[in-house]
Every structure is written in structure tokens, then in C-alpha cells.
Design a protein around this nucleic acid. Sequence first.
DNA 1: TCTTTTATATAAATGGATTATATAATTTAG
DNA 2: CTAAATTATATAATCCATTTATATAAAAGA
Lengths: 193, 193
Amino acid sequence: MPKQRITKEMVVEAAFELAREGGMEQVLVKNIAARLGCSVQPIYSYCSNMEELKKDVQKRTAWFFQEYVAAHIEKEDYFHSIGKAYLLLAKEEPHLFEFYFLRKRSDRTIHSLEELYERECSTSTADFLAEKYAISLEAAKRLHLNMVIYNTGISTMMISSNFGIPMEELDRQLQSAYEIFLQQILQEKKQNV
Amino acid sequence: MPKQRITKEMVVEAAFELAREGGMEQVLVKNIAARLGCSVQPIYSYCSNMEELKKDVQKRTAWFFQEYVAAHIEKEDYFHSIGKAYLLLAKEEPHLFEFYFLRKRSDRTIHSLEELYERECSTSTADFLAEKYAISLEAAKRLHLNMVIYNTGISTMMISSNFGIPMEELDRQLQSAYEIFLQQILQEKKQNV
DNA sequence: TCTTTTATATAAATGGATTATATAATTTAG
DNA sequence: CTAAATTATATAATCCATTTATATAAAAGA
């Protein structure tokens, strides 16, 4: 047989790039085939159908985001730098931003906020917060979860408002919410002593 | 000509019911035609295309939600009853819930959180909160906006977790966030006196 | 070298959106 | 009171994307 020119990775990567440039509605077999310079057959031999391929594109996107955000964390300005990274991504990669926030979190159903947190959030952030503010790991996780929820709310609204709200304003809003959640945790700690 | 049997309202209503029962992917011309007992032609004479029709279904959904929530508000338990109404809707109408929260907020781009707030939220809630807690209207709006953002975050996560997280848990989470935001406003007020 | 295998190509089949054409019932002009 | 014009709907055709079926040709193995 002819040696294999096309791999599953190439297919997913081409689909990812199309989605990145023009949104998921550009992920069409013929567009992928054109980009890879092949017919539609290789695409179907490595992916069962478009729906599955789009799930792979969403996973690829989640990975892209995690890499991007991890690379932009500044230890001194932990949370704010994460927030800024997301806002930057919203500006630079609006299409990807949409899949990332509106994606299904998992193939299976998630049954509690705890499970969602474990699945979504690396515990290193909670560890960091616990140490920085001398709070319990449990409190740090609550703080982190609140921020993730709030950030998801802001992001969903940004998407559905067509990305028209200025970054600075959203940045301020995130920052103010973070301070509110943090103050509450610190106060709770004071009262428990 | 034969007298008009089909109206635009009938088309949108049939599409809405299909979407409600089986999600937006069931909104197909042939399904609408079957439900109305007509051919595809009337649908196209009243709606320019499926994309526009789906926008109308989203508007119809927003209206359905506002009616539902308004009917479930209890004055003594204002915010909690709103939160409960949304969670009930998520349970009873998962498909509608999805369009409602992931819909485009407007045909045009929204340029500030203020504009988003004006467009999304009736000021009567802010008025109510301002009076109840004797805070400024501006502070009440901030409180309300924070809750709308947080609620959007919770809802987006509920959708993307496949509605597996129990209502009671989400209810508790909303309630605790509400108390945190409220405490902060009350404390701010104390300091300003 | 000849057969088998298989990666890719080409072509056909399916299904949904949309458009073009046809039909027949109601207005309306004469 | 017709007959022409209008138009709501139906039927049929077209378009475009996904998916499947068949064909081809290059590599591997006997």
C-alpha cells in the first residue's frame, strides 16, 4: 500500500486550525481535505465522524488554553495574571474561547461541584492560595471554585455579548470579585480563631 | 388565493416546541412542516431562513424564562426564589436552559457591563434590593450584577456538566455566593458612614 | 514475482436547506 | 357575474455537506 501520508494528529490539527481561524462552522471535511491536500477518505479512516472530530478539537483547545495560561502565570500576581491571560485569549482567539468555555466538561456526566473542581482545576492553585493567605486547603478550594465560577460567568457573557466589552472593564470586575471572595475567607478565618 | 392557514407565530411556536422537546438540533424544516401539517413553503415565506428562525426561537425562550421566573418570585425570599426558579427550569427544561444561557444577548455587540445590565436586568430588582437593605441604587446594581454573573457561571457549568450536579448543591452554592456579595456591600456601607 | 494488504482517491448515496415551478383558491377589475 | 391577477400552499428540483461504496496503486510478504 502507499505509505501513510496522513495521521489522525494531522487531521485534528488541521481541524483545530480551521476552528481557530473561522469558528467550528469552518470544520468541514472538504476544508480539512483541502488543507491537508488529500481526499476525504483519510479523514474518515482516522475519525469516525465529524461529531467525534469536533470533540477532539475541543480537547485540543482545552490543552492549548492550559498551556497558554500556565505560561502566563506570575507567582507574585497569581490570580490576576490568570485572569489577564484569559482576557487576552478572549481577544486574540475569540473562536477558541467560545469552545473552551461552552464545551462539555467531560464525556460523562459530572455529579457534584467537587467532581467538577477535581476535573477542571489543578490542586496546585489551591495549595498556593492556602499557603499565601495561611488558610486551610478546604477554604482555598472554596475560594478557587468561586473564582472559577465567576470567571465562567464573565466569559459566557463576553461570548454572548459578541466580545464587545473592553478587557479593562472585565479585568476590574474579575479583580473586584476576587477581593470580595478573599475578604470573606479572611474574615471567616479571623472569626474562627 | 387560499386563505392563510399558517402564520409566522405558528411557525415559531412549532419550532420552539421542537427545540423544547429535543434541543435545537430537532429544529428542521421537515419537522416543523410535519408538526404544522403543511409543506416547507409556508415556513420559508414567513422566515427568511433557519438561522433567523432559530434566533426567533431564542427570543421566544428568553420570554418564556422571564415569564416563568417572574411568576415564581416570592417577595420575602426574593433572590433565593429567583435562583430556585432557574434551577427548577434547568431540571424541567434542560434544552431551553441551554439556549437561554448560551444565547447571544443581542443582535448587536454590547460594549460595557452597564449596557449588558440595562439590557438583561429589569431595574425593579435593584430598586427592591436598595430599599430592603437601605443601600444606594448603585450598590444594589453592583450586587445584582454580581449575582447575575455568578448565576451565569453556575448555569454554564451545569449545562456543560450534563445537568448531573444536584439542585440542592447548586442552590447552596448560589446562596452562599449571594451572602458573600451582600456582606461586602453592607460592610462597605458601614465604613462609609 | 505474484498475491495480499491497505492508504488514498474517485464516485455515489443520503439528508437537510433552499429555490423554482405548479396549482388552486380568493380578490378584484371590468 | 365573470375573467384576470394575486398569492398561500404544494410539489419538485437544486445545492451543499456528510457519509459510504468502489476503485486504484503502492508497499509488504510469500
